[in-house]
Design a binder for these strands. Structure first.
Lengths: 118, 118
DNA sequence: TCCATATGTCGAGAATTATCGACATATTAA
DNA sequence: TTAATATGTCGATAATTCTCGACATATGGA
């Protein structure tokens, strides 16, 4: 991921409405949500939301697809992954002793084994 | 990590000079660098740099300590870790199936075992 | 066609941010 | 005290961003 691309992604998420939008879309995966529904749920005028969605879109953090009259937005988790990987590699920079404890803390968030109980 | 704190951290890194500063300070760990040296290396006037350093500082991403006439800045990797954990948990949100592949990609960046060869 | 719905674009004002000259403070050493 | 070094603060300007009313476009149905 390029420098400029990361800055776009960080800037996109560094705004409370857009951070809320992104989280909403992550929670709505994999179905996504139409633009109007996003605006309604976050109580933001549709044109203001349109601007925020386009910023997230330019940053590559969301994708959109038209279905009839609606345009459905979905979070692009690969883009988030790239951004996070970039930040982590900043720390690593060939020095695992810095990065390892970081990953150690992050891993428990998602146990590698997912056993669907029952 | 609070919402507002994350936004501060993201905003702090979403600016090219500051992203450069942070990376420079990460690479200078654990000794750190005096403010003037940071400004010199990145070819930025000292007062402009002072402003950027204070933004990084307010975001918790760097710490400073005075040594004689110099004020030495160091990257705070714990803060970066918190911010990254926050973003990851956004994705996980109790859904390991989303987060697991993310970690899978990130882990090779820092192999958990570090064997100093030869 | 005409209308309602869903969304995007334009443009302007308010708010925030980035930059840097000028000045202030802190430290050390004549 | 005076000067040199290292850094921070103030204030003004330029640039960018956020917000939202008004208008435009796209879709589907009467």
């Amino acid at each position: 991921m390029e420098n400029e691309q990361v800055i776009l992604a960080l800037a996109a998420l560094a705004q409370s409405t857009r951070l809320d939008v992104f989280r909403l879309l992550v929670s709505a995966e994999p179905e996504g949500l139409p633009a109007g529904e996003v605006a309604r749920r976050l109580a933001v005028p549709h044109n203001t939301m349109s601007s925020h969605l386009s910023i997230l879109s330019r940053a590559g953090l969301v994708r959109s697809e038209r279905f009839s009259r609606s345009i459905v937005y979905r979070a692009d988790l690969d883009a988030l992954r790239s951004a996070i990987a970039f930040l982590l590699k900043d720390c690593c920079g060939g020095r695992a002793e810095i990065c390892a404890p970081l990953l150690a803390e992050l891993t428990p968030c998602c146990p590698p084994k997912v056993t669907t109980d029952a």
